[in-house]
């Protein structure tokens, strides 16, 4: 554990908390892509199956449990509790175009051809593109609420900080994992356009609006 990794995890946690409290207190999931949230629930489920096989640390277990529970809680809020506010007409990204390549790639490129390892690899690939339905939705409506922008910024920063963590681990331990690094870079690059808009607009108190 190093500072980048810790900040990355905290940023991830912050993103989830922002999203949950936004939906909960506004009693609305308008502007949130349910499809991205479904993909995240699949990502955490596939990745954290090791909860029942390996003990790493109390920190590790707690974070995994929080990420899993919060992803299902988010789905519950969107699909059941506040389903009337779900903006399904703008959430039209076809997630099979992300799921199928992630499955095929995980079967082809992995560290070890075992069930848990292929699922871990699948979750890494899928996570790198899981935000696309959400970004697609923002581009389709041309705008995002500030709170949604804060959510996206925190979520995007998380993998960016993990990249610094991987640099640090390479220098200090000589450890590196190409699958995680390449997927992490792809994931972060997908947010770059958004990061730019966030810094130039949202931080200056303006609403995130895309040029028409």
């Amino acid at each position: 554990m190093n500072i980048f990794r810790l900040l990355g995890d905290l940023s991830h946690l912050l993103a989830i908390m922002i999203l949950l409290q936004k939906i909960f207190y506004s009693r609305s999931c308008a502007g949130i892509s349910a499809k991205s949230q479904v993909l995240f629930a699949i990502v955490y489920t596939a990745r954290y199956l090791d909860l029942v096989t390996v003990y790493v640390s109390l920190y590790n277990i707690s974070m995994k449990v929080v990420f899993l529970l919060s992803s299902y809680a988010t789905l519950y809020l969107i699909y059941l509790k506040f389903r009337a506010t779900y903006d399904r007409n703008h959430d039209t990204f076809r997630i099979e175009f992300l799921l199928l390549p992630a499955i095929v790639l995980a079967l082809l490129i992995n560290h070890q051809f075992s069930a848990l390892e292929v699922l871990w690899t699948f979750s890494i690939y899928l996570e790198s593109v899981a935000i696309l339905p959400q970004l697609f939705m923002v581009s389709k409506t041309g705008e995002a609420e500030s709170i949604t922008s804060h959510y996206l910024f925190a979520l995007g920063s998380y993998r960016g900080l993990y990249i610094l963590n991987w640099f640090y681990r390479y220098w200090t331990e000589g450890h590196y994992d190409l699958i995680a690094i390449v997927a992490g870079v792809v994931q972060t690059v997908l947010y770059c356009d958004f990061f730019y808009l966030y810094v130039t607009k949202v931080l200056k108190g303006k609403k995130l609006q895309l040029p028409a």
């Binding site: 390996v54 640390s57 590790n60 990420f67």
Partner: peptide, 10 residues
Amino acid sequence: QVVEENHDEL
């Protein structure tokens, strides 16, 4: 080696 290390990160 790499496979074990994967369980630590989130």
